[in-house]
Structure formats: C-alpha cells, structure tokens
Design a protein around this nucleic acid. Structure first.
Lengths: 149, 149
DNA sequence: CTAATTGCAAAAAGTTTGCAAGCGT
DNA sequence: ACGCTTGCAAACTTTTTGCAATTAG
C-alpha cells in the first residue's frame, strides 16, 4: 500500500516518463491514479472536478497536459461521442474495442468483433492504406431505451 | 439558368423549409449553392471565407444556423476528422460511406462496403441495439504517403 | 543546481445567442 | 403586417499558451 505502483498502467506511464527524461510529479501521479481507479469514459472537465477533493491540487492546464502525455504513450484515447467536449477513455494495451452509443441515455457499450476487424483490414489492403488505428461508433437506442420508446 | 433549382439537393432543402414554415432567404440559398457546387468535406470557417467573395454576404452566425438546418434535413453530416474544428460533408440521400483518413496529407478517401455493413447490423442485433447511424474512421497513411515514408 | 513543471490568467479557437433592424410570404 | 431571419457583438465552451515561481532528479 506504500510506494509500489499497484496498477500496471501506472508503471507503464512512469517508464514512459523516464524514457523521455520527464519527471514524475505529484500532479501527474494524481491524474493517473484517478483515471485508473475507475476506468471508463470521462471528460477533461470531469477530471478537474474529481481531483478537486484530492490532497494534491491539479490545475486544469496540467490535466490537459497530462492527458496529452497519456495519449502519447497510448494509455488513453480521445473519443468523440457526439457531445460538445472530447471524451477520453482508458485503453488496455493491445486491446481495442468499438462503441455503441445510446442517443437517449448517453450510455456507451463497448464491443469487439473479429469479423469486423478482418473486413476492415481487407478494405485497407484494397486501398493500399496503412492503418494505424480506427474508430467505429454506432449511434442509436440501447435495448433499454428502445423498449421504453 | 434562371430561377429553376438545378440541383436536386437544393430542391430538397427548399421543400424542407416550406414544410417547416421557414423562409427561403438569399443567405440560405447562397450557402446551399456553395456547398453543393463542390461537394466534399469542408469546415464552417472555410464556408465563411468561400462566401466572402459572393454577391450575397452571409454572416458566420447564419452559416452555422444554416448548417444546422441542412443537418436536420439530412443533406449534410458533421464529421470528426481528428482536427480541432468540425468538418461537414454532403450526404447523398440514401447513401452512406465511411472514411480512410491520411494522417500525413489529410486526404480523405470515402468507401462503402456491404460486408462491413452487414456485420455491423449483426452486432447491433446481438445487443438489442437499434441503430440510427454510424461512423467508421480508419486513420493511417494513404498509399501515396506510405510509399514516400 | 538546472531543466522540467506547475498554476495562473490571458488568449485562442469554435460555436452559440440576444436583440434590434430587415425581409419573405 | 406578421413573424421568421439576419448581422453584430458579446457570451460561452473547450483547450492552449506565456511566464514567473516551484520542484524533481
């Protein structure tokens, strides 16, 4: 419970910082801890508020800067769920999933489908396109909301 | 060359306005004409500039308001290409396509693939999800850029 | 020590809005 | 005429940035 990083993603981040000659600051640790204590989707502004109650104050500017670093080392991804601001989400290294987004209750369902991935790879091959990543968002009504409608 | 609407999408828009009790103004016509004279991807700000040289001045506010109307009648769609601002694109009624986005030269390739669509429909069915629309963006290097790399 | 980092507040960037004047129908 | 529209400028939202003070290594 002391200094040891319990979470593997935190270790990844620390290693990344070291490899870049960047520093491990209280603020950066606070941000990572907060994000990975409750993996899911969140907005930058939400993090600002979640970190308000913390022992370590973290300014909005630092949160944005840290999110950018986390993106560079692929621990989080930016997400556009159709709302005004950007959402972020934790990415399990090596994993990938797409999203079903409910327009009624704003819930987000993650899924992964191999057939889909293969077809996409095939399409890229046909276009001579070298994919680095992709994002599929399907909007509509989740099962709960479509029943209530 | 006179009053007749040459473009079918303009006719759709006019009909939509009428059905809503909205007015056909010089500004709205100018926006539609400009968009459909060169179908493709564009930003709101770009439209502002493209319309500067026009006989009819159209303010930024009106452009945003008109784009919203065009979205409501499904003639244009908002697009997130990863850049800061929103892009828009003309939508051929009844058609749908996805995008390959080159991170190097910012070019956008459109494609449509039936197998992909079927797999997506299958996924939705499995989740009891009622799709209204979707967006697949594949990021990477286009064939030209991957050769030069 | 020294370079990286932080917080702040100002600036940017993109979009929306209130309101008085103007224009379709 | 009536009510929808426009333009303007101000407001807003989200994100970025310059800079002096601070801190990790």
């Amino acid at each position: 419970m002391a200094g040891k990083p319990e979470q593997p993603e935190k270790a990844v981040f620390l290693r990344f910082l070291k490899s870049r000659g960047l520093k491990v600051t209280r603020q950066r640790e606070a941000v990572v801890n907060e994000i990975f204590s409750d993996s899911g989707h969140f907005e930058a502004e939400e993090l600002v508020h979640r970190l308000r109650g913390n022992r370590t104050r973290v300014s909005r500017a630092t949160i944005y800067r840290t999110l950018e670093l986390l993106r560079e080392c692929q621990l989080v991804e930016k997400l556009d769920l159709g709302q005004s601001g950007s959402f972020y989400e934790y990415v399990n290294p090596g994993e990938h999933h797409d999203h079903l987004i409910c327009l009624q209750c704003d819930s987000v369902i993650e899924f992964h489908n191999e057939k889909l991935e293969r077809t996409q790879a095939e399409i890229c091959r046909n276009f001579g396109f070298q994919e680095t990543h992709h994002s599929l968002r399907i909007f509509g009504l989740c099962s709960k909301c479509s029943q209530n409608a």
